[in-house]
Design a protein around this nucleic acid. Structure first.
Lengths: 212, 212
DNA sequence: GTCTATACGATGATAGAC
DNA sequence: GTCTATCATCGTATAGAC
């Protein structure tokens, strides 16, 4: 097996186990065993457990953030062309929809976003900062766009409400099978996820647009 | 020292360290050392690390839930007397305000609620269920009250939006010093907490009241 | 360069002496 | 009730095989 194979198998195994058991509880022994690699392979290829998490996060989050950033830019460009202000719901949809669509992808990354949901509120500052550094540019971009959409609100208030939005969203993505309970289904269903996504978008849009 | 003293000192030390480092990362050795007790004392008095967390949660959460439950009942009683429907904002305020007021109390429990913020989304089902079992009655009570306040919405949709509310709130209580950054203050300030609390109440009230 | 085997200190937990 | 001794397991580091 080549180096690339081992690295990818380690990333896949780590992603799955971090998602199921959490960062602290998932042991390097369990991860390397699942990846059919030696215990020391994780340290050799990534440098440590923390660096392995960082690689797991970057692999999925960088493309996802690019996708969300592009969609926000599209909304802004369309508003500029039309000579109007961008709509809050369109901006929020650009931010939230790709995140949940990730879960329905067939490329084996369905478990990933529960990791970032927990990294966001981790008690470990190293884990938290790992995530925050990766989303900070996107967060700033969205904040700036929302300031254009909501000129009657102060940037500070929009920042606060964006923080609440991150919380509501983070809670939803912590549990891969959560969306189905909203419909009382026993088995997971792509429609449950879409139902939850649309309701979340409506909820936070109303919260962001609330009068001051 | 009496048994009671040791138990309380263990609870205090566990509360502080669980809050600062998280449940998994806070070691029993650090907790018992901080409590000036033997390593085995935690196992003797509580039965294990998980049971210690359970005791930490119950000590603060049962009185807090009683307080929140009473305030919800007061809102419902006042509405009945006035012959009107209860207001969403009043119900949400009854639920959220005591939670954040907890943080400003001087009895050394200021660190506590960050524990429940993380227990809510813990990857460990045992930890999560510990918290869920403690708040389930209160959650049902609030859901039922909101169904009275929002008769135009289905109970299922209200449940979904209450889930988002828990997420936004849980995110806020994960970080003891988070509220101050909204005002750009360098030092923590009770007014920052009140500012954040009021903005959170306005945000989730607007989200809950959003048209279907 | 890649990978394996192995050792080290620290952890949660428990049994049994006192 | 309290404490010591002990065990399996954790993340990490390193020496050496291929």
């Amino acid at each position: 097996m080549t180096q690339t194979d081992t690295k990818i198998r380690l990333l896949d195994a780590a992603e799955s186990l971090f998602s199921q058991q959490g960062f602290t509880s998932a042991s390097l022994r369990a991860i390397t065993t699942a990846a059919q690699a030696n215990l020391a392979a994780a340290n050799y290829h990534f440098g440590g457990k923390e660096a392995l998490l960082s690689a797991v996060l970057e692999r999925r989050l960088l493309p996802l953030n690019q996708q969300r950033s592009d969609r926000i830019d599209q909304v802004l460009a369309a508003a500029t062309t039309a000579g109007t202000r961008p709509e809050v719901e369109a901006l929020i949809r650009a931010f939230i929809e790709p995140t949940f669509a990730f879960r329905r992808d067939k490329n084996g990354s369905s478990e990933f976003i529960s990791i970032i949901g927990r990294a966001m509120t981790s008690a470990d500052p190293l884990v938290r900062d790992l995530f925050l550094a990766l989303v900070q540019p996107l967060f700033s971009q969205l904040h700036q766009a929302l300031c254009q959409a909501l000129p009657q609100l102060t940037p500070q208030l929009i920042f606060t409400r964006l923080f609440f939005t991150m919380g509501a969203m983070g809670h939803c993505i912590c549990f891969p099978g959560m969306s189905q309970i909203f419909n009382g289904n026993s088995a997971s269903n792509p429609e449950d996820d879409i139902f939850m996504t649309n309701n979340l978008i409506r909820f936070v849009t109303a919260g962001l647009e609330a009068p001051c």
